[in-house]
Amino acid sequence: MDYKFSYNIKQNETSKKDNSNNNKDQDTENENIKDFGIPNSIGKNNIQFISLIGEIEGHFVAHSDKKATKYEHIIPILINSQQDPAIEGIFIILNTMGGDVEAGLALSELIHGINKPKVSLVLGGGHSIGVPLATSTDFSVIVPSATMTIHPIRTTGLVINGPQTYRYFQKMQQRINEFILRTSNITEKTLLDLMYASDQLANDIGTILVGNEAVDNGLIDAVGDFSFAISKLKNLIKTNNENQ
Rank of each mutant, 00 (worst) to 15 (best):
P144H: 05
T147V: 15
Q174H: 12
I90R: 02
V210Y: 09
N161P: 01
S41L: 08
Q83R: 13
D18G: 00
D35I: 10
S64Q: 12
N40F: 04
I42A: 08
R154G: 14
Y7S: 11
S64P: 02
P39A: 05
N21H: 12
E242R: 06
S184L: 06
N185F: 01
T137I: 04
S184Y: 04
H112R: 15
T28W: 02
K232T: 14
L233D: 06
T69D: 04
V215M: 07
I50M: 05
N8M: 12
G157V: 10
H112E: 09
G126R: 01
R167M: 11
G99T: 10
D216Q: 14
E178Y: 07
I38L: 10
E57G: 05
G130Y: 08
T187L: 08
D199S: 12
D84W: 01
P85G: 03
D18Q: 13
E57N: 03
A214R: 07
E188W: 01
N80L: 05
I92F: 02
I208P: 06
Q174L: 14
R154L: 03
G54N: 10
L191V: 08
F36P: 00
E55G: 03
N235L: 11
A68M: 10
G211I: 02
S145P: 00
H59C: 04
N240L: 00
N203P: 00
T96L: 10
I38P: 01
D199N: 14
H127K: 07
T156F: 06
K4Y: 05
S231Q: 09
V122H: 04
E88P: 00
D100C: 11
D18L: 15
N12I: 14
V223D: 07
E178N: 15
P152Y: 04
I50N: 05
I87T: 13
N32G: 15
V223S: 11
G125S: 10
G43F: 02
Y168C: 00
L52Q: 06
I77K: 11
V210F: 07
F169M: 13
Q244M: 04
P163C: 06
E13S: 04
Q173E: 13
H59Q: 08
Q11N: 15
Q173A: 06
D27S: 10
V61E: 15
T183V: 01
N240V: 01
I92V: 07
V119H: 02
N45K: 12
N8C: 10
G206Q: 12
M195Y: 00
N12Q: 13
G58Q: 08
R182M: 11
I87N: 01
R182F: 01
S140L: 05
A68R: 15
M195C: 12
I92A: 03
K16Q: 13
G157M: 08
L158D: 10
G124V: 09
L158Q: 08
E188T: 11
I42L: 08
S184I: 04
S41C: 06
D84S: 12
I220C: 04
L121D: 07
D35S: 13
N8W: 12
F49L: 11
G43D: 07
T149I: 14
S184Q: 10
A106N: 09
N30K: 12
Q170P: 01
D2N: 10
N80E: 14
P163G: 05
K171I: 03
L105Y: 04
T147H: 09
A197H: 06
K234M: 09
